[in-house]
Design a binder for these strands. Structure first.
Lengths: 202, 202
DNA sequence: TAAACTTTTTGAACAGTGTTTAGTTTTTAG
DNA sequence: CTAAAAACTAAACACTGTTCAAAAAGTTTA
């Protein structure tokens, strides 16, 4: 009976891996239940024995992204200077988006995982909340250390998230290149440096 | 022969209006060629007589958004103080995103219009470029007036775009609420105020 | 072992999508 | 009035997510 469960989880894992492979290599349009099924040697209907629907598959996938991002943020807790930690978090966030663009899209843009939250009647997005908490806490630490005087912590935290997220999505949607934002190698890198300098002056 | 052209453009217009109506009222998933066709009393195949494909319809639609956004930016040219103009542009941008969320998505997030650019072998996204130009010019004016000393104009411009765009998409994707970013009425408004204060200190 | 029961798997279908093609109808020009 | 051009459509193709009844496989009980 333990083996049963093992096998079930095993195939769930296979589904997730196939979905991830299709998603990263060929995008959302090729990540179909039929393609997933074919990749693991099952019929399309079988996929629905292991997952409620496609939204749940994508939701489960996006959780893996948050696990990795959290891991990276956790490493940065060793950075004692809160302002330096905040800047390092931003860089880690950008780095993550470059290494896992598909996963990033699932975590912060795609409607699929959010759709699952509504299917499951979950009012909250725990992973997003936890990640924002990490940011908010670091901003709070900065304030305690005398930075950002007169600024509203919550609003400033959201602004910081927005700025970095905005760079990522403009870049990933192809808009920054198509709008000729760069005669420069990496506009995102340069803009983030500008952002760090802004934070220094607050 | 002028009447011919008139009628052709007339039906193109009808297609666009139907598409816009479906998109704003029921989202992308209900904005199908079949639904558009039904709304204007034509067969689905007829739509392809007036537009190459769905990407072209969405592209044409997103142009209307840029026309309106440009109109709003043009009004702000009367604001002589460049820093004030920059801040007003940001507010106008946010205001636009609130009034036309569907159009905003088409302009800055959806892959459909960008897909058309690739279909049409257009290396450039003229509307995005023109809009970014307006922002870049205003930042340049700010620099000329002694602001943002030591900052890189291009990178700073991209950062400003990113910050405001990031607020909009986090808000519109439902992520900000689901991540409990607000026990506050309007986190976007508050964050933008923080942003203005940041600009003042540069 | 045989029957009963449960878990797992699937073929087939439903309702939908974007798009193409061949053929028909309508309109215009000579 | 006829020939050419323009406008329009039915039907199909190849997909999509999803459901359901039935079949197959595995497990437990008598």
């Amino acid at each position: 009976m333990a083996k049963r469960k093992k096998k079930l989880e095993d195939i769930q894992q296979q589904v997730l891996e196939a979905a991830m492979k299709l998603y990263t290599e060929h995008g959302i349009e090729k990540t179909s239940i039929r393609n997933i099924a074919e990749l693991i040697g099952y019929s399309p209907a079988s996929v629905y024995f292991y997952f409620k629907n496609k939204a749940e598959i994508m939701f489960t996938l996006h959780l893996k992204g948050f696990k990795e991002l959290k891991r990276r943020f956790d490493v940065l807790r060793s950075v004692k200077n809160p302002l330096e930690r905040l800047k390092a978090m931003g860089r880690a966030y950008l780095q993550f988006s470059v290494e896992y663009p598909a996963l990033y899209d699932l975590m912060f843009s795609s409607t699929y995982p959010m759709q699952h939250l509504e299917d499951a009647d979950e009012a909250m997005w725990r992973q997003g909340e936890a990640t924002f908490d990490a940011l908010r806490q670091t901003v709070t630490d900065c304030v305690a250390a005398g930075h950002f005087a007169g600024h509203h912590t919550e609003a400033l935290s959201f602004l910081i998230w927005s700025a970095v997220h905005g760079m990522v999505v403009l870049h990933q949607s192809g808009r920054s290149e198509k709008a000729q934002v760069e005669a420069y190698q990496d506009i995102v890198e340069m803009s983030y440096s500008e952002f760090e300098r802004m934070l220094d002056r607050l």
